[in-house]
Amino acid sequence: MQPTREQWIALYEAASAFKDQASWEWLTNGHIFGIENPVDGGLGYISILGNGGEAFGLSVYLGTEGIRVLMDMLNGEVEEDPLFTQHCLLMALNDREDLYPEERKKIKELGLTFRGKKAWPAFLYYEPGFVPSPELSGAQAEFLTLALRQTMALAGEFRNKPDELFHDDPTKILVRCPSDEGQAWTNEWRSLPELPEEESNEQVAIRVDELRLARMKKTITSREAVWEIDCSYVPIPLMEGERGVFPKLMMLVDQTSGQILKAALSNRREIVQETVDSLLAVMESLTVIPSRIEALTEEAFRYVGPLLQYFEIEAYLTTELPALEEAKDSMMAGLIANRK
């Protein structure tokens, strides 16, 4: 359900008050804390933007998936562009000319006005694999309003002691918790959710014909090949229903010749099965089981891990894959040209 007029007005007013407080003057995006949603008990993890003097606003990273990406960004361990992987609500303070026409129209319809640079609130919902959307639900607008208000309260409390937001134990984080049905709020230290390093966001069942695998292992004897593999988002949105999605591109390249053995576009849920099917199909058509497969990130290996183990294929992570990167650049150029 879309936000009501009253919910939109409350959200814009909270964003304006956040701008006036300017808490980025004493808090950085590394002063992370949590806010508990009194409606469902879910946690939003707050990162304040503006200390660097460029982008101003507030991000609310949602749940375990959200905090995982946030911590990876802070630690410099991001494999994919956060545009594709963030799960968060964003309030950004923009210049008027940077707003979408529909955002300016909404502000006018609400009878609101803002003046000056970096003073016009804009709101976006980021969901992994989807194009960021300015269309919030009523529940999202309520929680973002609450997050702005509670951030201002906590920022004021820690104005003269900002580093007390850091615990000696790096697994602890301060969380604003509602009491008395949300009428009063307290702070308490909680443990961060466990963030398994090798957990994949793609929780799907992979379909593999075991008889097919056994037949391939028995009949294909050639191992004279080294292949390179990659699975990554493509910054060219496609429509899936009413929402824009970022597809993933799977590429399999022969390291010696640079030949593209297989390339396929799929959404984030189907790319796992697509990668498995593609690897098996190429092995069958070429009657080759590679001795080694190399990749730039662990993601593809998580998809095809059972196949690597079954066929005893060595897996190597590396920082450079010239053949694959050249092929990917060529493929991307073609996709962009076709889109024009």
Score class of each variant (00 low, 15 high):
Gln2Trp: 02
Pro3Phe: 01
Glu6Phe: 00
Trp8Val: 10
Tyr12Glu: 05
Glu13Ala: 11
Ala14Phe: 03
Ala17Arg: 15
Ala17Ser: 15
Ala17Pro: 00
Phe18Arg: 14
Asp20Gln: 15
Trp24Tyr: 09
Glu25Trp: 05
Gly30Thr: 14
Gly30Tyr: 11
His31Asn: 09
His31Gln: 04
Gly34Ser: 04
Ile35Asn: 10
Val39Asn: 06
Asp40Val: 07
Gly41Tyr: 09
Gly44Met: 01
Gly52Pro: 03
Glu54Trp: 03
Val60Pro: 06
Leu62Ser: 08
Gly66Gln: 10
Asp72Cys: 00
Met73Cys: 01
Leu74Asp: 07
Leu74Ile: 12
Gly76Trp: 15
Gly76Thr: 11
Val78Cys: 04
Glu80Lys: 06
Leu83Met: 12
Phe84His: 13
His87Gln: 14
Asp95Thr: 08
Arg96Glu: 14
Glu97Cys: 00
Asp98Met: 10
Asp98Thr: 08
Pro101Gly: 12
Lys105Cys: 02
Lys108Phe: 01
Gly111Ile: 14
Leu112Asp: 08
Trp120Ile: 08
Trp120Glu: 06
Pro121Arg: 11
Pro121Lys: 14
Ala122Trp: 02
Tyr126Arg: 10
Pro128Tyr: 08
Gly129Gln: 14
Pro132Val: 05
Pro132Asp: 07
Ala139Thr: 13
Ala141Tyr: 01
Glu142Ile: 04
Phe143Tyr: 12
Leu144Asn: 15
Leu144Ile: 09
Leu144Arg: 14
Thr145Lys: 11
Leu148Thr: 13
Ala155Glu: 07
Asn160Glu: 15
Asn160Gln: 13
Asp163Lys: 12
Phe166Tyr: 15
Asp168Pro: 00
Asp169Arg: 11
Thr171Cys: 01
Ile173Asp: 02
Leu174Cys: 07
Val175Gly: 06
Arg176Tyr: 00
Cys177Met: 10
Cys177Lys: 07
Cys177His: 06
Cys177Phe: 09
Ser179Gly: 12
Ser179Ala: 08
Gly182Ile: 05
Glu188Ile: 04
Glu188His: 05
Arg190Tyr: 01
Ser191Val: 03
Pro193Gly: 11
Leu195Asn: 04
Ser200Gln: 11
Gln203His: 08
Ile206Glu: 08
Ile206Thr: 15
Glu210Tyr: 04
Glu210Val: 06
Leu211Gln: 13
Leu213Trp: 06
Arg215Val: 02
Lys218Asp: 12
Ser222Asn: 15
Val226Tyr: 01
Trp227Val: 15
Glu228Gly: 05
Cys231Glu: 09
Ser232Gly: 12
Pro235Gly: 01
Leu238Phe: 02
Glu242Met: 11
Arg243Asn: 06
Val245Cys: 06
Pro247Ser: 07
Pro247Trp: 03
Leu249Trp: 08
Met250Lys: 04
Met251Glu: 13
Gln255Met: 03
Thr256Met: 03
Gly258Val: 08
Leu261Asp: 11
Leu261Lys: 10
Lys262Asp: 11
Leu265Glu: 13
Glu270Trp: 08
Ile271Gln: 15
Val272Lys: 15
Glu274Asn: 14
Leu280Glu: 01
Leu280Val: 04
Val282Ala: 07
Ile293Thr: 10
Leu296Cys: 01
Ala300Glu: 15
Ala300Leu: 00
Tyr303Thr: 09
Leu307Val: 05
Leu307Pro: 00
Tyr310Arg: 13
Tyr310Asn: 03
Glu312Ala: 11
Ile313Phe: 02
Ile313Pro: 01
Leu317Val: 04
Thr319Arg: 14
Ala323Cys: 02
Ala323Asn: 03
Glu325Val: 07
Ala327Ser: 14
Lys328Val: 04
Ser330Leu: 13
Met331His: 04
Gly334Glu: 14
